[in-house]
Write a protein that binds this DNA or RNA. Structure first.
Lengths: 227, 227
DNA sequence: GCAAAAGTGTTTGCCTTACACCCATGA
DNA sequence: TCATGGGTGTAAGGCAAACACTTTTGC
């Protein structure tokens, strides 16, 4: 066993599967890689850990510098460490997933990097093991969307029950019953009814809701049984 | 920003919270650290990633070399990457948890390293952030014990319903109702009744069960609602 | 016979699901 | 007036918690 093998040097990459909600579906933000040998191929948003930050700080820095959003919903998913996943240099990645409001992103910054939103069923071939990462990140998103009420991170501050239900329909790839969805969500006690209506999506008009900032922990138990 | 900060060199540590089941309770295997400045203080079982292996292989190598067991149930939990968590060198850790059968361990190997089993409510002060690691690993164990029927990894090949229930009582820190537990577990359809009984734990004698090797995925949904 | 665990059955109440039904209104 | 989503109500079914009850056998 050579000394190189025992004391390997490598770089730690922080990769972010960034999910947004646009045109009634969950989308994934990709950008073209700028380094050889992957130049031009689509990739998750990523960067290397620096000496003056922990992994979470690195993820926040990368999100801010690449898409210009701060205070992002960010969760660690898992590591990727196959020895041959990157040529020449050993790179270990820590995958995260992020939820962002598409309208909050600075399009100028996105476009300057060539970033684009992709539907989840139209994700192209990505570099390295990034296609596997997308699948795993999405699974974790599904699991956690059932542990707590997400949506705050994907929707504008005020949203209708229809909009929230559409998000959940997308995430879980199923049609929730409108009546039961409403009752279940309201019973969680984390939404605040607003005194004004959205009239663009129905004739009658639907009240807007927002997340009650007074409630910290959204849900202790599972939201849906998903049978 | 100095070059050091941008291109930090660091080592990647693989840490294992090893859980076993002994004397009717869940225990944690610790060993005394051998490196300065932590020499002699209790620590999780850990080692550094080498250049010729991925993280999972490293964890398996460490488990085999330290406690002499192969084919261990191993799950990645999360990373720990505070910049100041280790003096001088930057060390990023990937925490795992492992389930082992206490009787399978080679005691000679354990003792040569000075390793010891600790009750979960008697865990001493550990080095670095290892106490936080133990808590997080245990929480993940709880979550996953509700996603799938564990126990195979902690109990001998043949076990009674009482033994399995005791494991679950320990993991979830609650008393499951014997009748309901039996019905719930058997309804999962993953256990195989054996044609012989254990007579040491009750007068009447309880049939042994084993995990049915034909069943791969133990449980798709939650086992207990845990309200 | 007593105690103690094994094992089965039953009742109760809650939660989910499915769906009926009325409301409001733009086209 | 008709279609569409908003919103409320309710009946049926499934499931889990609580617990009664019988079995078995070492002491």
């Amino acid at each position: 066993m050579s000394q190189i093998e025992l004391m390997s040097t490598f770089r730690l990459s922080v990769d972010c599967a960034i999910f947004g909600y646009q045109d009634g579906e969950i989308k994934l933000l990709l950008h073209p890689n700028i380094f050889e040998p992957f130049q031009g191929k689509w990739s998750l948003v990523s960067g290397f850990l620096r000496g003056d930050e922990n992994i979470n700080e690195a993820a926040e820095r990368i999100m801010l510098s690449r898409i210009g959003v701060d205070n992002v919903f960010l969760k660690e998913v898992s590591t990727f460490s196959e020895t041959s996943r990157y040529p020449k240099v050993r790179v270990v990645s820590v995958l995260h997933y992020a939820l962002v409001r598409v309208d909050e992103l600075q399009y100028s910054r996105l476009e300057s990097h060539g970033a684009q939103w992709f539907s989840l069923n139209e994700v192209p071939n990505l570099i390295m093991d990034h296609n596997v990462m997308v699948k795993r990140a999405y699974k974790q998103l599904q699991r956690e969307a059932n542990d707590q009420l997400l949506g705050k991170e994907l929707l504008p501050p005020f949203f209708t029950m229809l909009q929230l239900r559409n998000v959940y329909n997308c995430i879980f790839q199923k049609e929730f019953d409108p009546a039961n969805f409403r009752k279940k969500i309201l019973s969680l006690g984390v939404l605040k009814k607003q005194p004004f209506k959205n009239k663009t999506e129905s004739k009658k008009g639907a009240f807007y809701y927002s997340f009650d900032p007074a409630v910290k922990s959204y849900c202790a138990d599972k939201i849906f049984s998903l049978k």
